[in-house]
C-alpha cells in the first residue's frame, strides 16, 4: 500500500472546466456538492482506503523565527495572488493508478448546473517506511 495526499486549492491550481464561484450556484447545487464529498469520504472508509482529511479555512499567514528571545515574525494574511490550499485528504491505496482514479472521481464532484467541476487536484505521494528486508 502507498499513501497519497490529495490537495484541493482555493487558488493557484489551473482553472477548472466548470469554473463558477460557489456562491453563484443554486442552494440545491451547493447541497449536492457537499453530499458528493461526504459520500466520497464514506466510500473510501468502506474500502479501507481513507486515512484522514480536513478542510482548511482560507485565512492564514507566514511565520518564521526571528532568533532567540525575540517573537516570531509573521507575514500575512496571505496575499490575494498566493496559491491557497482549501483542504486535503490522505488515502492509502494499492498503487499510483488507484490514487489517480480516486482523485479523478473527487474532481468530478458536481458544481454549477449540477455538472461536474472537473477541477485540478494535486496528487502527492507520501514517503513510505524503509522495509525490514533489504536484500
Amino acid at each position: 500500500m502507498a499513501k497519497y495526499l490529495l490537495l484541493k486549492h482555493y487558488r493557484g491550481a489551473p482553472a477548472a472546466v466548470n469554473d463558477v464561484a460557489m456562491d453563484q450556484w443554486t442552494p440545491e447545487e451547493v447541497s449536492a456538492h457537499m453530499q458528493y464529498m461526504d459520500d466520497f469520504a464514506k466510500r473510501l472508509e468502506g474500502t479501507g482506503e481513507f486515512v484522514d482529511g480536513q478542510a482548511l479555512r482560507p485565512e492564514g499567514m507566514w511565520v518564521r523565527s526571528d532568533g532567540e528571545g525575540r517573537p516570531p515574525v509573521t507575514d500575512g494574511p496571505f496575499a490575494e495572488t498566493k496559491d491557497l490550499i482549501a483542504g486535503w485528504m490522505i488515502i492509502d491505496v494499492e498503487d499510483q493508478d488507484r490514487a489517480i482514479e480516486l482523485a479523478g472521481q473527487l474532481s468530478a464532484a458536481p458544481g454549477a448546473g449540477g455538472r461536474p467541476i472537473h477541477e485540478w487536484l494535486e496528487v502527492r505521494p507520501v514517503f513510505g517506511e524503509p522495509p525490514t528486508v533489504t536484500e
Binding site: M22, D23, Q24, W25, T26, P27, E29, V30, S31, M34, A55, R57, P58, E59
Partner: peptide
C-alpha cells in the same frame, strides 16, 4: 462564508449567498 469558524456554518452561509 470565507471567515466561518466551521464547515457547517460555512456551508450554511454559502447557501444563503447562493439563494
Amino acid at each position: 462564508a470565507r471567515s466561518a469558524p466551521n464547515v457547517a456554518e460555512r456551508d450554511h452561509l454559502v447557501r444563503q449567498a447562493a439563494r
